[in-house]
Nucleic acid binder design. Structure first.
Lengths: 236, 236
DNA sequence: CTCTGTGAAGTCATTCACAGCG
DNA sequence: CGCTGTGAATGACTTCACAGAG
């Protein structure tokens, strides 16, 4: 185990590996080589080994990795063995959709509070859930009472910086931001921005120049020649 | 204007620059230097110049860039001068939240169809809107009838690949995917994945190791020492 | 003989630094 | 004289390729 600095690209991929391992585990597979893993989920085997290599030696030469074992290691590395408590600022469509999002639980995250500053919304219950929309002013109090360690920003861009400032002064160190705004954060606070506008506009660029001029996305290098027919599966 | 390959990092940043220019424009500012732009929105001035340099010479030496002029150029580069028509697969919480998302319009995108395979949902109207939830089987027909050029995947991971295949066979070349799954796409189809699970798990890694070990996020290098007090602004 | 772990090589991205235009 | 546009320098990330463990 070295103690180099780990890039965010690596931590993102660890999360992906974990998801792949969950799939394999559900399929009853006990061990997997970096090559098999790479082929199945279109990743690069050397990169898998390198990423894991930053944290220890989890493989068995001549065999590969034991699925359950590696799963536990990555879970620990990502800090997912301890539960996280999430607060969401902004009870608009996105905020309430996120409050009900089941995917959080899978990673040991649970949404414990939802905030807004609209008088009309405060006090309302959300979804089929027992969450009550709270006044944004209560962020500092609820952060400590509820042990919130991650906040989600789901407010309009115009007020996002202000809300981030409140969140930072409540002592939160990890923020997931959905507002399309460039936010300024202290160095000890990690802000991850998910920017729909940028994603869409970047897709638009791609559409505007068929083929050439765009670096082919390394994440999806495999060819798929026979798109399957319509399915009957239940969507959501 | 060179004809090098442009990386996605560059197109993402162009979108950010556009947003910054909109802010400046709204503030009545007529021209701006790369340095001023960089300072105000914590970017790097050399990078701004380099990114723009791939597409032409838009600046004026000794002055900087004319805001409106540059805005128009970037809008054209990103293909945002032509309208885009968006279809959303999956009428769950996320899909319906996106269908009502106002931010699309700003970039010349409009949501024109919403699909699901749940009998109970098909035919229902969404939000205050005139959108009717359609059967996923109608994707190919509506893509051509409605001139849809971008599809959003907002279905569970389990069926995401199947839905992507249907979307690809309907001739769509640009896809924004919210399902936490590794999808295989043809080389001529651009898939951008927005992965909440990965974002959160990566934040968790950061929380697990205060300070050290994480590369400081280059996007947020400025220091902010006085987080503002609580605000009264309307959130959403 | 297979597959990991890892230096070394290669590729891609950012930042520097300055010539030269307006 | 200020600022752009851009080669050249640096730095970061990925991929190669192979020694050596099991």
């Amino acid at each position: 185990m070295k103690s180099e600095k780990i890039s965010e690209l690596t931590t993102n991929r660890l999360s992906v590996y974990l998801r792949c391992l969950n799939t394999l585990s559900a399929a009853g597979i006990k061990s997997v080589s970096s090559q098999a893993l790479a082929e199945q989920f279109n990743l690069n085997s050397a990169q898998i080994r390198k990423d894991l290599g930053y944290f220890g030696e989890f493989g068995v030469r001549g065999v590969g990795y034991y699925v359950e074992d590696l799963r536990e290691h990555i879970t620990k590395i990502l800090g997912l063995d301890k539960p996280h408590r999430v607060g969401i600022a902004g009870a608009g469509r996105l905020g309430t959709a996120l409050a009900d999002y089941k995917g959080f639980g899978r990673s040991n995250f649970s949404v414990v509070a939802l905030f807004d500053n609209d008088e009309a919304k405060i006090g309302r219950r959300v979804g089929g859930d027992k969450l009550v929309i709270q006044d944004v002013k209560k962020i500092p109090r609820l952060v400590s009472e509820e042990g919130i360690d991650v906040m989600v920003i789901a407010v309009p861009a115009r007020v996002a910086q202000k809300v981030l400032n409140q969140i930072m002064s409540a002592g939160i160190k990890a923020v997931l931001n959905f507002a399309p705004a460039s936010l300024h954060a202290r160095l000890d606070v990690k802000v991850k921005t998910v920017d729909l506008t940028t994603s869409l506009e970047s897709l638009s660029y791609f559409l505007a120049r068929p083929q050439i001029n765009t670096v082919t996305n390394p994440q999806y290098k495999s060819q798929l020649d026979e798109p399957a027919e319509l399915s009957e599966h239940k969507l959501q």
